[in-house]
Amino acid sequence: MAGWQIKSRGTGRRGGYRGPDLSGPFESVGGLFMMSADAVKFLFRRPFQGKEMLEQSWFVARVSLVPTLLVAIPFTVLVSFTLNILLRELGAADLSGAGAAFGAITQVGPMVTVLIVAGSGATAMCADLGSRTIREEIDAMEVLGINPVQRLVTPRMVASGLVALLLNSLVCIIGVVGGYVFSVFVQNVNPGAFASGITLLTGINEVVISSIKALLFGLIAGLVACYRGLTVSGGPKSVGNAVNETVVYAFMALFVVNVVVTAVGVQLTAG
């Protein structure tokens, strides 16, 4: 590993990836970027842990599916309700379909995805790797000549990104269908006008940008979870702290990525 490695930190404390000889946040950020670079590199090196990737994909999907449904529906109702009130005041209630589709695909879908993947799937990954770290299983893997990044991090990163992409598609569908049901049957919007307005503001460009957001969200959440799990030091209490930090760090990173990708996507599709 280039410039960093998994090793003991002394006095019985087992660490994970240690970045450059810096202190505090800079060391953590450096270590995360180094681990991420290695994880991406091992995507193109054999053997790829396909079985591990499929198992982790099923695991993340299993713990994320129900929360996704429970969060997506209230988000959809809130967006449709607020938007329809505004459009009624402007005398443009027939455009509710355009607003519901645009909001669901460009914002609600990716944001619900980041909330669930980071809050449910990534924390479970962090707890699993953190438990392995304090039991010194990661050290044992290195002694046996097994690279933990190739064996554990890369498949989890791919699995998190894949599940996030699929969940985003599900949330977008729920958003459009839920917006239709709520607008037509609760707020008495004309169903034909709603359906005809769906593609008014939302096209293939918006769908692609939404998918890119979700994929990046999943990859970053998986990498943050793996990094914090492999850098746990101390006893079982530190695993709980790492899980809490995973949620905070993932949310911070993902909201920044959302702003950047949205701005870049708007500029690219402005024409």
Score class of each variant (00 low, 15 high):
residue 109 G to S: 15
residue 109 G to F: 02
residue 110 P to H: 05
residue 111 M to N: 15
residue 111 M to V: 12
residue 111 M to H: 06
residue 112 V to S: 07
residue 113 T to W: 01
residue 113 T to A: 09
residue 113 T to S: 12
residue 115 L to W: 07
residue 115 L to Q: 01
residue 115 L to T: 12
residue 117 V to Y: 03
residue 118 A to H: 04
residue 119 G to Q: 09
residue 119 G to A: 12
residue 121 G to S: 14
residue 122 A to D: 14
residue 123 T to V: 15
residue 124 A to E: 14
residue 126 C to R: 03
residue 128 D to I: 06
residue 129 L to Q: 02
residue 129 L to T: 02
residue 130 G to C: 05
residue 130 G to I: 00
residue 131 S to C: 00
residue 132 R to C: 08
residue 134 I to C: 07
residue 135 R to H: 14
residue 136 E to H: 11
residue 136 E to D: 14
residue 138 I to Y: 00
residue 139 D to E: 13
residue 140 A to I: 06
residue 140 A to Y: 00
residue 140 A to G: 11
residue 141 M to I: 07
residue 142 E to T: 11
residue 143 V to M: 14
residue 143 V to E: 05
residue 144 L to P: 04
residue 144 L to A: 14
residue 145 G to P: 03
residue 146 I to F: 01
residue 147 N to K: 12
residue 147 N to W: 02
residue 147 N to L: 01
residue 148 P to K: 12
residue 148 P to V: 02
residue 149 V to W: 02
residue 151 R to V: 14
residue 153 V to H: 03
residue 154 T to P: 12
residue 156 R to T: 14
residue 156 R to E: 08
residue 156 R to L: 07
residue 157 M to G: 13
residue 159 A to V: 10
residue 160 S to E: 10
residue 161 G to R: 08
residue 161 G to M: 08
residue 162 L to K: 04
residue 164 A to T: 05
residue 164 A to D: 06
residue 165 L to N: 05
residue 165 L to F: 14
residue 166 L to C: 09
residue 168 N to D: 13
residue 170 L to D: 08
residue 171 V to N: 07
residue 171 V to D: 02
residue 172 C to H: 03
residue 173 I to Q: 11
residue 177 V to A: 14
residue 178 G to S: 02
residue 178 G to W: 00
residue 179 G to F: 06
residue 180 Y to D: 04
residue 182 F to I: 11
residue 183 S to D: 15
residue 184 V to M: 05
residue 185 F to T: 08
residue 186 V to L: 10
residue 187 Q to F: 08
